[in-house]
Amino acid sequence: MSDAQTDVRAYTLRLELVDEPGELLRSLRPIAEHGGNLLSIFHERGNVTPRGHIPVEVDIEATPDRFETIVDGLRDAGINVIQAGTERYSEGMTIILSGHLIDTDLSDTLSQIQETKSATVTDISLSAPAGASDISSARMKLATESGSTEEVLSVIRDIAEEKDLRLVEPLTTGGAE
């Protein structure tokens, strides 16, 4: 096909920023300086990692060469690059799980989904009207690699079965497959 080194592709960068003013801007500078085209920034301001950092997901377009330079530039600037994916999380998917989510270790459920490598959980909302020890529900937004929705769903189905959770899957209506 086309020359791999000059072909512009989409990449996802997962960064963890120190919670200080100007950090987000500082993290974007190396991208602009090295010729990356910024597609979107997902700044999880309310979400803090166990280390007190703020996760940020940045989608950019660049040639593979430039992408390498951008990642190096970010690391040189002291920005914490968690994941520099060649994969593109191009499809969004929402699911709802219900059951003894807390008792069956919600963070383990999330890790198992992340471990599929083709999906990342970008947002989670929990509803536990009767308290954490009773039935609760969680809505999760996942970003999946294009074409891998079915594979990711099948992993989630297995998790749901194993933990006796009720899963409501999205209805994909043509075109997107």
């Binding site: 709802i96 219900s98 909302s125 509803s127 536990a128 009207p129 039935i135 609760s136 529900s137 969680a138 809505r139 009720r166 409501v168």
Partner: peptide, 8 residues
């Protein structure tokens, strides 16, 4: 559970 519909 009603909470599923609420989250939706």
């Amino acid at each position: 559970p009603g909470s599923m519909l609420e989250l939706a």
